[in-house]
Amino acid sequence: MATLTWQGRTIACGDESVLDALAREGVTVPSSCRAGACQSCLVRAVAGTAPSSAQKGLRASLVEQGFFLACQATLTDDLTAAPADDLPVTRATVLRVERAADDVARVFLRTDGAFEARGGQFVHVMRDDGLTRPYSLANRSGDGSLELHVRRVAGGAMSPWLCDLAAGATLHLRGPSGECVYRRDRPTQPLVLAGTGTGLAPLLGVLRDALDAGHGAPITLVHGARTLAGLYEDDALRAMAARHPMVRYEPAVLDAPEGDPRRGDFRARVAAVVKATKGARVHLCGPPETLRPVQRDTFLAGVPLGDIAADLFVTAPSR
């Protein structure tokens, strides 16, 4: 059995993850998805080698510095690790919070000092009590203010608090992370951007960057929602599609009235768009239950894995 040394304590680690072993000993490391998707549980190896299987999806600079995901790490060799305290944390002030739909808020933030982030990446919002959750950026790269779209999860620890913040409140951000970004080196590759609910946020970030770059190929955005009210950017996206000949906006609403052109099944709509768009790069964002089958369909339809950028909003398992 391997031994983990953590701030002077020694903890025996069996088959369980480092995150669970620490929790068993009463040490809390921030976590959210427990599935390797959100990077909330970053910790750092100080002596010994970080398990490489727990470094998937991390930026090269983080890997080099020995950071790894505590929820994905099981130890076969002894390791000394420490909290990721020394990762840069940026303070941000809430500029305003807008109600986009019954259960969705747009949260605009201004960071103290520069914050290099690209549209479509995600940041970790950290509350003063240590609670940490990832949220995606709907703003364009280099925008002076950051734009988050937050869905209010009933009984959730972070999202209702975020939706109810008042202008002037402060919080802390870590990051950014994530590869769901516009590829500037592929200006003529068609884009398919598909997501449900607040999965629209990173897609908007990518779309805005693509338009800024004068993207030279069709961009089709599919937004899925249960009800018409869930199309919380309907007006803005229609206007964008009217203004830009390259942009097509395809809403897919499950419960839209019979005869409304926006009525449709998200999975079927994306499949049709992917089929009609040869050689596309496909971005898929939103809840994993909805997006995983779409990711699979897309791959089986012939899109190479390297052309599928999936940012699944994996959430904490229910307690």
């Binding site: 998707a37 998937k56 999806g57 995983r292 990711q295 699979r296 894995l305 599928i308 999936a310």
Partner: peptide, 8 residues
């Protein structure tokens, strides 16, 4: 659970 991980 994770297609990218499976692909690896």
């Amino acid at each position: 659970v994770d297609m990218q991980a499976q692909a690896a």
